[in-house]
Design a protein around this nucleic acid. Structure first.
Lengths: 144, 144
DNA sequence: ATACATGCAAACATTTTGCTTTGGC
DNA sequence: GCCAAAGCAAAATGTTTGCATGTAT
C-alpha cells in the first residue's frame, strides 16, 4: 500500500551495484524519497516520519551527495535557501512554485524542451545535458 | 561605449518613481547589473570594477531585495549556494551551465515555454507567472 | 524635518570538512 | 580485516536582522 512507485529493494540493488553499502541511513533516505510527493530538503528528509532512524545531518548530506553523483538522485534549485532532492525515477518533472508561500506543485505536462535539449547539446558540445524548468507565481491563496 | 543596453539614468528614474532614493550604492548596483554579461551574486556585484564605491554586504543585500520586490531585478537560482541576480530588462533569458566548472552561458534561443506559461496560468489560477529554464551539463573543457 | 538608507555587528541556516569510531562486505 | 560510512564537532559560506547613524528628499 505504499505510495511509492519504485520498489525500495530495487533501488538498494542499484545502490549496491554502484558501490554503496546497505546501511540503515541509506535505506531510510531511499524510503523517504521513494514516497515523497515532491522534492525535499535534507532537513525534511531527516524529519520525515518514514525516515525512521535518527542520524547526523552530515551523514545525510554525504549520502545524498553520493546518490547525486551516481545520478540516482536529482538536485533541484527552487528558490529556497536549501537545495531540494528527488529520485531520478523515470521521466523528469517540471514544477510550479508560489513565490509567497513556497508551495510546490508537480506539473503534469509534456515537457516542451526535449528536442531543444538535443539541439543545444549539439551546438554547445556539452555532454550529459539535462534541464530544469520551473514556473514561479502567486497561488490563489496568496493572491488575497 | 558602454556594453549596457539600458541607460542607467532611465533605470534610476524607474527606481525613484518606485520610491527608492538615489544613493551611491543604488547607482553602483545598477551600473554593474546593466553591464553584466550574466547573472551575478551579491559578492560578484560588490567586487566588480564597475561598482566603484565600497559598501557593506548588508546594504547590497537590502538594495537588491528592494529591486527584486519592485521587479526591476530578477533572481536566478542556478545551483550554486549563492543566488544570482540580473536586470529584468526586456525579454527573459535561458541559461546553459556547466555542472563541473560552473560556467554560465546565456542561450540565444526563442524560449519555447511562453504559450505553455499562459496555459498553466489559466489552469492553476496563479498570477504573475514567470519561469526559469536552465540546462545543466558538462562543458567541452570539463569533459577532458 | 522626516523617513529611508547605510554601516557595523551579530544571529542564522545550511553546507562542508576533519577526524575518530563503527560496521558492511 | 579492510575500507566505506557514520557520528561528532567545528569551520565555512551566504543570508538575514537589530540598532544607531547618516543623508536624500
Amino acid at each position: 500500500m505504499s505510495k511509492s512507485s519504485v520498489a525500495i529493494d530495487e533501488l538498494i540493488t542499484v545502490c549496491s551495484a554502484s558501490g554503496l553499502r546497505r546501511t540503515a541511513a541509506l535505506e531510510a533516505c531511499l524510503r523517504v524519497l521513494a514516497t515523497a510527493e515532491q522534492p525535499m530538503t535534507l532537513q525534511q528528509i531527516a524529519s520525515d516520519p518514514a525516515f525512521g532512524v535518527s542520524c547526523d545531518p552530515a551523514t545525510i548530506y554525504r549520502l545524498i551527495t553520493r546518490l547525486e553523483e551516481r545520478r540516482i538522485v536529482r538536485r533541484i534549485g527552487f528558490h529556497s535557501r536549501a537545495a531540494h532532492y528527488c529520485l531520478r525515477e523515470g521521466s523528469h518533472q517540471d514544477y510550479l512554485i508560489c513565490r509567497d508561500c513556497g508551495s510546490v506543485e508537480v506539473l503534469d505536462i509534456a515537457c516542451p524542451v526535449e528536442h531543444l535539449e538535443k539541439q543545444i547539446a549539439e551546438e554547445s558540445g556539452f555532454s550529459d545535458l539535462e534541464h530544469e524548468l520551473e514556473f514561479f507565481g502567486r497561488c490563489l491563496a496568496c493572491q488575497k
